[in-house]
């Protein structure tokens, strides 16, 4: 995790780092919450930064955690890779309380990271970041031919789609037959 005044990472809930002192410090001390991903590394994030995530913001509002409770119970996001959650936390910290710029050049350029980021951001309901990510996804195929797009986005051919559809129908048929047989067995 990049060093920011709002957060830190560790294998266990981390001790709050000292917030920077400044003349314009808010009167009310800022609350901090903790999140971890698949790698169990805990990230400490301010409530202000987490406001970007509608999901986490909703969880905070509903749970009414005190800071101590929040520290003891980090929000678990087991479906999100640690490095992806790190990116999300960094983005939230960088854009805390700021108007979001029309473009964000700090998003990952690696395709696989970008797609994982889209899934994570969609799950966490971070609308602005999702918008940037989707734009980045669209930029991947800018100026490309259909063959190149098919390769970049792994688009199945018509024949592959038809084969997958047949396979799905066959599987559904087998499942339905299995359920019927089970129901008949129960009836006996």
């Amino acid at each position: 995790m990049s060093s920011t005044e709002q957060g830190t990472s560790s294998a266990a809930p981390a001790e709050p780092t000292t917030a920077p002192e400044s003349a314009a410090a808010p009167e009310v001390p800022e609350s901090f919450y903790y999140v971890h991903g698949k790698d169990k590394v805990v990230h400490k994030v301010s409530a202000g930064a987490l406001q970007h995530s509608a999901l986490i913001h909703g969880m905070i509002s509903n749970l009414g955690y005190t800071e101590e409770q929040a520290k003891a119970n980090p929000f678990p996001f087991e479906n999100i890779d640690g490095d992806i959650l790190q990116m999300v936390v960094d983005w939230c910290n960088q854009h805390k309380g700021k108007p979001t710029p029309p473009e964000d050049t700090n998003l990952p350029k690696q395709k696989e990271k970008l797609f994982d980021l889209v899934l994570a951001v969609n799950y966490l309901e971070i609308k602005e970041l999702l918008t940037y990510c989707c734009k980045q996804v669209a930029m991947m195929v800018k100026g490309k031919s259909p063959e190149e797009i098919r390769e970049i986005w792994m688009i199945p051919t018509d024949a592959e789609d038809e084969a997958a559809e047949k396979e799905a129908k066959k599987r559904a048929g087998k499942e339905a037959a299995g359920e019927t047989a089970a129901a008949a067995g129960d009836a006996k």
Binding site: K111, E112, L114, F115, V118, L119, N122, V137, E151, I152, W153, M154, I155
Partner: peptide, 10 residues
């Protein structure tokens, strides 16, 4: 590395 576009939410 190619990525499956249809794996992202609709």
């Amino acid at each position: 590395m190619p990525i499956r576009i249809f794996s992202i939410p609709a």
